[in-house]
């Protein structure tokens, strides 16, 4: 397969290399479960940045990703996959984390665009994060600024392959097992309140 679209580079390899041994130690039921969760994906598309503009063509008539069993849903409770499309500002990051933690396992994250990998063209901005994987578990990077819909589709196909064959350690497992690391990163950046506090903003109008 052509490797041009997806960033099949060091980051992706390092994600995949960690867990080559897992594959063989699976029971038949686990394999079947993997197959089904690869075949049917419910996506909550979090349009954080400009990359969000490439998602509607993927889900509608032009590229029709429903062929692959990928369907958009409206709430994170029902979703398996979250697409973080582009840069996250600090304010957005709180919502992204909250959305991520609402999803039920097994859950996966696709990070779309260079901004999520290493800052992209917003590398010197005070208000956007640089590496998404420091704050939540990421399973698939799609590089490009912005990636074409074909690239996103190939990202989906690669993710399905790796779920089916169990070649990566899923991000949610890392997030669960290594929660202290992720929480430390979140708190370093966002302070103690890593979750958005909606009540305070509206009830206490005189915060200044």
């Amino acid at each position: 397969m052509q490797k041009g679209f997806v960033a099949y580079n060091n980051e992706q390899k390092s994600l995949e290399a960690e867990t080559e041994g897992i594959k063989n130690s699976q029971t038949l039921i686990q394999k079947a479960m993997n197959w089904f969760s690869a075949r049917s994906m419910f996506v909550v598309a979090y349009g954080t940045g400009c990359g969000a503009i490439e998602m509607p063509p993927v889900f509608t008539s032009r590229y029709d990703i429903e062929r692959l069993g990928v369907v958009g849903v409206a709430t994170p409770r029902q979703a398996d996959i979250m697409i973080v499309s582009g840069y996250c500002s600090l304010k957005t990051l709180r919502r992204v984390i909250r959305t991520y933690e609402q999803m039920s396992e097994p859950k996966y994250v696709i990070a779309l665009g260079s901004c999520t990998i290493n800052g992209g063209m917003y590398w010197d901005s005070y208000n956007t994060i640089k590496k998404l994987e420091e704050y939540i578990g990421v399973d698939m990077y799609v590089a490009g600024c912005m990636p074409r819909p074909e690239a996103l589709i190939e990202g989906f196909v690669k993710l399905q392959e790796s779920i089916r064959n169990n070649t990566i350690q899923p991000g949610y497992v890392k997030y669960r097992e290594d929660y202290a690391y992720y929480q430390a990163n979140q708190e370093k950046l966002l302070g103690k309140e890593t979750q958005p506090v909606y009540e305070e903003d509206y009830a206490g109008m005189n915060l200044s």
Partner: peptide, 9 residues
Amino acid sequence: FVHEHFAFK
């Protein structure tokens, strides 16, 4: 600020 709060690959 960026170098204080973020790390790059």
